[in-house]
Write a protein that binds this DNA or RNA. Sequence first.
RNA 1: UCUUGGGAGGAG
Length: 372
Amino acid sequence: GFIRNKLIEVYGKCGSAKDAREVFDGTSPKDSFSWDFMLTAYTRNRNVEEAEKLFQEMPEKNLFSWNVMLAAYAQSGYVLRTMETFNRMPQRDVVSWNTVVTFYARNGNLEQARALLKDMPERDLVSWKAVIAVYAQEGHLAEVKILFDEMPGWDLVVWTTAVALYARNKRIVEAREMFDTMPERDMISWTSLITAYARKGYMKEAKDMFEDIPERDLILWTGMLVGYAENRLFTEAEEAFRRMPERNMVSWTAMIVGYAEAGRLDMAKSFFDRMPEADLVSWTAMVVAYARNGNLAESINLFIQMPERDSVSWTAMVVVTAQTGELEETKRIYDAMPEKTLASSTAMLAACGCSGKINEAEIIFESMPVVD
RNA sequence: UCUUGGGAGGAG
């Protein structure tokens, strides 16, 4: 009972849905915790298809399970299933509403998200922060300012978002001033500003703060590494990679992407080959690396070889083939997708348009889900 | 019950 559930939970967290499933299958009787742990094990490992299967088999679905499934669809960018699930839920709470308003912000526009924010029957500070975060990540300074003024109160999270937003807009003096005047700071606020500096090319500022900070965790190290790599400072990136106390998938993949974007496919491949184990993200990075460096055949080859595919890898494949003008290939992949995302449909639409296939473009357009 | 929100890796 309790112990077996704990095991499912632990395996799920450690990234092994398979092990969790083994324990789950051997658990009898299963209570609602067993089912929920198994469900989150799948969603945390980005396995939406298996999560969906499990969800359908669940003898009783509580609000928590519905919310988990809703979040899984929303994070995968599945418009239809997200809306359908939200509409079918027997009850909704503030978490369900927040999941949906975040989804709107990511896939619609600011006006829609703001309208929903005002009409939602339940809202809390998270709702505001969720919408703000999406726009801050995209760097929309003017729009976020409106929301900053409208929201009921500021806390550490909002301050941190604001600081990062200014830094991403290269307003580094203001960002630093805000950072210095904010009422409290934690590890995330430090990392947020440092990585924003680094990624905008202010490596001197980033490095100085990095040296000043009392403790450095894996995320901060990786942030610096990404900054170096994005600014093509590979000597420094490699040095950070060696010096960091530990490395995870993110560190390895950051090196792969950094080299690939600089056109150094051989270096990217060598990091991929040396990874202790590759995950979905690193596989996708490598698939895209080949395509963007002119080797579509090998890209498709890897795509077929990869142990699993999710909505991002499918979308990536549609986009890269569309960009190389391989319309037939693009269409094959697009048709094979388990569920279309807005990004994949947009790419497919553009590909048809560019090749003068107006009728086909129209069919795709009509089939595209509308977020409203 | 780390289901939604601020810091690091894949498409957009």
